Computed example of a mutant assay.
Amino acid sequence: MKRLATLLLSCAALATASNCAKDDATPTGPKEYQVEYRISSTTVQASDYISYDNESGGTTTVNNVPLPASYRFKRTMKQGDHLSLLASLNGGTAASEITAAILLDGKEVKKETGRGTNAQAVPVYVIGK
């Protein structure tokens, strides 16, 4: 009887653990996401350089961008694919700062702030990590 109780408890624990794993699992197949990049600063009015992964997986680069700035698009990605954004200031002061954020489906997944005369913010997000 003791072995039966142990076996039943073990099965119950295993079933609970496997259900939890299913809830937390990230889909590995392709999924379409609404991607948004947000760049802002409380100390300067423009970023001298912004570079980001675009809707085709290539890179888009823009210069002298008034802040705040935002870029939105849809992109189909799978586990292991990444999004990256680089925003910089040139010739600011020691107190200058720039913040860059990556959002997926309206949820912020990564945010970085750079400070200083040549501040850079470089958030990178990997799907499923």
Rank of each mutant, 00 (worst) to 15 (best):
S47D: 03
I98Q: 01
S70T: 10
R115S: 10
E112S: 01
V124M: 02
S96F: 02
L67P: 06
N118S: 02
K110V: 08
K2A: 15
I39D: 07
N63Y: 10
A46C: 09
E108D: 03
A95E: 11
A17G: 15
S40I: 05
L4P: 01
A119V: 10
T6I: 15
S84A: 15
P68C: 05
E36L: 07
T60Q: 11
Y49A: 08
L9M: 09
A46L: 02
V126G: 04
Q79V: 07
T59M: 10
N63L: 02
L86C: 07
K2R: 15
T99P: 00
S18H: 14
I102H: 03
T61R: 09
A95T: 12
M77Q: 04
L4E: 14
Y71T: 01
P30S: 14
F73H: 10
T59V: 05
S88T: 07
M77H: 00
T16S: 15
K74Q: 04
G106A: 12
I102L: 02
S56F: 07
T59I: 13
V109T: 08
A46T: 10
T93A: 12
T43N: 05
S88N: 11
D48T: 11
I98C: 02
T93W: 01
M1P: 11
L83V: 07
M77G: 05
A12C: 13
C20N: 08
T76D: 00
Y52D: 00
G29M: 10
G29N: 10
